[in-house]
């Protein structure tokens, strides 16, 4: 009896008239949409599919409706199979030049594994924190301001006697951005910070860790270019340099660079190199 009452009440609450939003006429706007995310899904993803397509590495088609004509033709043209002499299979051992560790086999190309941005890691190591722990606070507040996310403090994993670093000391701060925050940070970086960097012509064409993840290191002066820091610059006693790592689902560096250039991250081409 009580269960039924509960169900009645909760269902009544779920009735459309009780919802908080109305689907009536509102002013047309892109309110609530993320500019870069929309750009990726509408333009970049399709272009990446075409640009990175490889006819030799294609998944079998997953058509909803089978190609009846081809199936029929296949059935009609079925021939008597001749006995084929099969060579003994030699177990293939994959090797990489120079005895380097093997890389995972690339998945076959299809619409579901188009390279996409997985996460952005913003990370700063504060060397001064060895001598005085509170130096880390400045970097902490700065990263929190520019990413709108609470950073985590990184503690030293090992002791390094030369640096007077002992295990367990707070030595850096790190933020991992995903989804909405990630795209907002990327937008800010590409539109405001990168164009104002001095003596920087773009990422080198060799950038990437071999698996499609790309990192940029920024000098302390770059931190002041973020609009959040610019306004309250005096509040930060120390500016720190920081690294931004773009983690992509791409499998090769070339694909990772293609993806980032789709987000308007500049790359130093051959042309700018010859100009020097």
């Amino acid at each position: 009896m009580a269960l039924r009452l509960l169900a009645q009440r909760s269902l009544a609450r779920a009735a459309p008239s009780h919802r908080l939003f109305s689907t009536g006429a509102v002013v047309a706007s892109s309110h609530g949409l993320n500019r870069l995310k929309e750009h990726y899904h509408n333009i970049v993803a399709e272009d990446l599919m075409v640009l990175t397509y490889d006819h030799t590495k294609v998944s079998p088609p997953t058509l909803k409706n089978a190609d009846l004509e081809a199936l029929l033709n296949n059935a009609i043209s079925e021939k008597v199979e001749e006995p084929v002499v099969v060579a003994p299979k030699v177990e293939e051992v994959r090797k990489r030049k120079g005895g380097k560790p093997l890389k995972p086999i690339q998945p076959l190309k299809n619409g579901s594994n188009i390279p996409t941005l997985d996460k952005i890691t913003v990370h700063a190591m504060v060397k001064d924190a060895i001598h005085q722990k509170n130096h880390i606070l400045s970097a902490f507040m700065a990263l929190q301001s520019i990413t709108a996310t609470k950073p985590e403090v990184i503690f030293a994993k090992t002791s390094v006697a030369n640096w007077k670093l002992r295990e367990g000391m707070p030595i850096g701060v790190k933020v991992t951005l995903r989804g909405k925050e990630m795209y907002q940070f990327l937008d800010k970086l590409v539109e405001i910070v990168l164009p104002r960097l001095k003596e920087w012509h773009g990422l080198p064409m060799t950038s990437g860790d071999g698996n499609g993840n790309i990192g940029i290191g920024f000098p302390p002066s770059a931190l002041a270019l973020f609009p959040e820091i610019e306004g309250s610059f005096d509040m930060y006693p120390k500016m720190t340099g920081f690294d931004v790592v773009f983690n992509t689902t791409a499998n090769t560096n070339a694909e990772g660079r293609l993806l980032l250039s789709g987000f308007n991250v500049p790359f130093k081409g051959a042309k700018t190199q010859t100009k020097k």
Binding site: L20, F21, S22, T23, G24, V26, A28, S29, S30, H31, G32, L33, R35, E38, N42, I43
Partner: peptide, 19 residues
């Protein structure tokens, strides 16, 4: 010619964002 401005969000998208 690619889209020049971000598309209109649907009323549901707006409401979801606000919530």
């Amino acid at each position: 010619r690619t889209p020049q401005i971000t598309r209109d969000s649907t009323p549901f998208e707006k409401a979801y964002f606000d919530y």
